[in-house]
Design a protein around this nucleic acid. Sequence first.
DNA 1: ATGTTTGCTGCAACCGCTTGCGTTAGGGCA
DNA 2: TGCCCTAACGCAAGCGGTTGCAGCAAACAT
Lengths: 159, 159
Amino acid sequence: MTSPRPNPSAVIRGDALWSGIRDDLRARGLRWTPQRRTLVEVLSKTQGHVTGVQLVERCRAIDPETTPSTVYRTLDVLEDLGLIRHGHGADGREEFHVLPAAEHGHIYCHSCGGTWEIGHDQAASLLETLASEHRFTADLSHVTIAGRCAACLEAPPSA
Amino acid sequence: MTSPRPNPSAVIRGDALWSGIRDDLRARGLRWTPQRRTLVEVLSKTQGHVTGVQLVERCRAIDPETTPSTVYRTLDVLEDLGLIRHGHGADGREEFHVLPAAEHGHIYCHSCGGTWEIGHDQAASLLETLASEHRFTADLSHVTIAGRCAACLEAPPSA
DNA sequence: ATGTTTGCTGCAACCGCTTGCGTTAGGGCA
DNA sequence: TGCCCTAACGCAAGCGGTTGCAGCAAACAT
């Protein structure tokens, strides 16, 4: 379209984790493109959770030409590679977790909108129950459990 | 009190549960309109889960003029009244549960797309853990937990 | 019946995300 | 180095769901 690539400052942070992605992709017959590089750069600077929109915004900060469809498609690919995972927030919107991170779920308060993480150990008994009674292997990180936190139960903000 | 709307066959099923809605609404200063009547009729014939789109479709079968925004807004109101609940499926889309129904969550298999219900007792220990460690009261019915069922773990469909 | 209040409706635009399609360009190979 | 195959891109349309707004009509009162 325009210049060779308006992406001069796309310096990949050399974290061992991310530097192999290019080869991972090629090994699968997939390609290493400037757009993917941008997204990987953004992800490498990200910890915890991000929504799709946030990722698109951050990519645009690096390369304003970024289009959403490309970002979302690349996120799918990276999830296949096992580099990220996605889940859904309490409102159903997508949320991406950058790995490596302890697998964890979320709890969300309807009233105040707060969210907290729950660890694998705290959900362990549920996971075990599902495994034994349904022979089901659950993916905790996909889940956001909604409810009410203690503070809101005692003193609802303004319901 | 036949309405002026083209809604001739809107015969409310006289289930005790639903017949009081009109008064519930009025008691709160809200209104009983033909559109709401249509939706309530649809819900009264529904058990288990429905998606938003399905509800819109079924309403249109009764009144082709039905518009989505009205349906979704009415669903919000009915949820306030405690007549239904909504949650999010594994893909983040809305799912409505018609009450009264035992509060239950869902598990969804990524591979085969199957879904199963999980009862309150099976999630009890998770709910207790959340209550004691985070002082959080969870709403089980809002949740769909994704993962893999036994069959797919043993013999992945094709992936 | 008629008026008044204000909750509700339908429209159209928008949001987050996905998809189909024609075009571009990565990258293995000669 | 240049060729070719096809993965990936950008665009535009679409889907499920939401929202602001102007007009409409329930419901209560006169």
